[in-house]
């Protein structure tokens, strides 16, 4: 196939031969060292700006350091980051979940275990007696959030599954998962994103009405 080469690749390649100056090692060596030294001096004399995102760290006196002293300093995850699950509560504190098993079905890692129960005298008939997520099995794909027809499970906690010292501790039950801001009306938490450069408060229930939005 030909998409219109001006010259043969070979001709252009031969220009790539090192010149004598480059063959003497020293010039390119010194240039390379100068690049690294520039980083060194900038970082030595600058102060570290750990509160803004890497890309926004500019200005006089700000050094180029991109890493942070984890865990004393933590970088907030962007809005919409798929973090630790939470079971969304209703305003009265009970889970929104109606134990429809959609999330457990959609889960590729089969990490969700649900046992359904019935309320006696409620408009809402079903609720999960047990709702457990094995965070060691979870692959954080977000399919459960997408599959939920009740907006009852979200991954907007802004944190990740914590480190545990034994495997059973990684199985999060209903009490552990239930938390965050309560939600009365379903909203599309998967596709709605808070605009960037603002940190969405944990479990915020603002907006979230439409998808594909610009």
């Amino acid at each position: 196939m030909d998409h219109g080469h001006a010259e043969s690749p070979r001709a252009a390649q031969d220009e790539q031969e090192l010149t004598l100056g480059e063959k003497l090692f020293l010039r390119e060596t010194i240039k390379g060292m100068a690049i690294v030294a520039r980083h060194f001096w900038k970082n030595l004399f600058g102060f570290r700006d750990n509160t803004t995102e890497v890309l926004d760290r500019k200005g006089t006196g700000v050094n180029l350091v991109t890493t942070i002293n984890y865990p004393e300093e933590q970088k907030p995850y962007p809005p919409g980051y798929r973090g630790m699950h939470r079971l969304v509560p209703r305003v009265d504190g009970r889970p929104r979940c109606v134990a429809c098993y959609m999330c457990a079905t959609a889960c590729p890692a089969q990490c969700i275990y649900i046992e359904a129960g019935e309320y006696d005298d409620q408009a809402i008939e079903k609720y999960p007696v047990r709702f457990e997520i094995d965070e060691l099995r979870c692959i954080v794909c977000g399919f459960c959030v997408e599959a939920c027809p009740k907006d009852a499970i979200r991954m907007d906690t802004g944190t990740h599954a914590p480190a545990v010292l034994s495997r059973p501790l990684a199985v999060f039950d209903k009490e552990a998962l239930l938390g965050g801001a309560p939600v009365e009306l379903s909203s599309d938490s998967m596709t709605y994103r808070a605009p960037l450069k603002t940190v969405a408060p944990m479990g915020s229930n603002e907006g979230g009405k439409k998808m594909g939005g610009h």
């Binding site: 750990n50 006089t60 914590p162 039950d173 552990a176």
Partner: peptide, 25 residues
């Protein structure tokens, strides 16, 4: 073994802003 308190908001560490002025620096 249930880690019920894991997600309590106090457990989630937040970034500590380091305030440094140019003069300080």
């Amino acid at each position: 073994l249930t880690p019920s308190s894991r997600l309590a908001s106090s457990d989630i560490p937040t970034a500590v802003p380091v305030k440094r002025t140019v003069g300080n620096w």
